[in-house]
Simulated scan of single mutants.
Amino acid sequence: MASLRPLDQISTNQIEIPVYNNTNQAEQKQYQGEDDNDQFDYSQRAQWLRAALLGANDGLVSVSSLMMGVGAVKEDVKAMLLAGFAGLVAGACSMAIGEFVSVYTQYDIERAQMKRDMKNRNGNTEESGKEDESEKEKLPNPTHAAMASAMAFTVGALVPLLAAAFIKEHKLRLGVVAAVASFALVIFGGVGAVLGRTPAVRSCARVLVGGWVAMAITFGLSKLIGTKGMEV
């Protein structure tokens, strides 16, 4: 018969204490969240992101360049503002119409393809009808695209207009328009990079340099043509 040992002689190594590691669970949740972010399809944002950034950049660069061109030969603030406002209205209408026609063409092409697929599909008619309805909801909306493009253009065009509206001195006005437009271009490029998960520095530099080139060419050619025309 085995002898009993005193209680104080029992080894503590025989006692198992369960320990729950909450740190590992937290890390697993964190990694799972990161995996979900990595698996997110950022290409789904491409269509509306492209339309919004294209409209805003077009409005900003077009109206800024137009105001710089007019300011190269005219010192009157009213002339610059009137030219900028005309560019805003014309550009917004042009962007809306162009986007509407483009998206409607895409809609017609995809709708025709869906009809061809339904004719070639073999199966239950009810299931085909349900699939057709679900696919219709995924098609682009031309009206929404046109409105979004026009609004984005207007937002971009308002930046140089508001910057020049309260400055009377001519050279200072030109400098403020160029500076504010450059700052807005950097912001637009950064927003596009963040939403699209692309390199921010490269995106901002590309947008900024493109805007500078457009404003410089418009200012230089307007100055040259305006000066030569006045001499004649």
Results as ranks from 00 to 15, higher is better:
Ser11Asn: 06
Arg45His: 10
Ala26Asp: 15
Thr125Phe: 13
Asn122Leu: 09
Leu185Gln: 08
Met151Asp: 00
Gly59Asn: 00
Ser134Thr: 08
Glu127Asn: 15
Ala92Lys: 08
Glu169Gly: 01
Ser182Cys: 03
Ala79Arg: 10
Met67Lys: 01
Met95Pro: 07
Met80Gln: 14
Glu231Val: 10
Lys119Tyr: 11
Ala79Leu: 11
Ala79Val: 07
Ala181Phe: 07
Ala92Cys: 00
Ala56His: 09
Gly220Thr: 15
Ala2Glu: 04
Val101Cys: 12
Leu7Tyr: 06
Ala152Tyr: 12
Phe85Lys: 05
Val89Ser: 06
Leu172Ala: 09
Asp41Ala: 13
Ala164Ser: 01
Glu126Trp: 00
Met230Pro: 00
Val207Gln: 13
Gln25Tyr: 10
Ala152Cys: 09
Glu127Met: 15
Gln113Thr: 11
Ile17Phe: 06
Met151Tyr: 08
Gln30Gly: 12
Val180Lys: 01
Ile109Asp: 11
Gln28Trp: 01
Phe166Trp: 14
Lys136Gly: 00
Ser182Lys: 03
Ala214Asn: 07
Thr23Gly: 15
Asn37Cys: 00
Val73Trp: 02
Met230Asp: 08
Ala179Thr: 11
Gln39Thr: 04
Ile17Leu: 15
Ala193Tyr: 05
Gly156His: 07
Leu158Thr: 07
Ala92Phe: 02
Met68Gly: 14
Asn141Thr: 00
Gly129Thr: 10
Phe100Asn: 06
Ala178His: 10
Ala112His: 09
Ile167Tyr: 07
Leu54Glu: 08
Tyr31Gly: 02
Met67Leu: 10
Ala72Asn: 03
Ser43Thr: 13
Ser203Gln: 07
Lys78Glu: 13
Asn124Pro: 04
Val209Ala: 13
Leu139Asp: 02
Ala214Gly: 08
Ser128His: 11
Gln44Arg: 15
Lys228Pro: 00
Met67His: 03
Pro6Gly: 09
His170Val: 02
Arg111Asp: 12
Asn22Arg: 15
Glu75His: 07
Gly55Thr: 03
Ala165Trp: 15
Met230Cys: 00
Gly211Pro: 02
Gly87Thr: 02
Ser182Tyr: 04
Leu82Tyr: 08
Pro18Ile: 03
Gly33Met: 13
Val89Gln: 10
Gln14Asn: 00
Ala178Val: 13
Met95Thr: 08
Gly87Val: 06
Thr227Phe: 13
Asp35Phe: 15
Ala145Leu: 07
Ile15Asp: 05
Thr227Pro: 04
Ala146His: 05
Ile10Asn: 02
Ala163His: 07
Asp38Lys: 11
Asn22Gly: 14
Glu110Ser: 06
Leu60Arg: 05
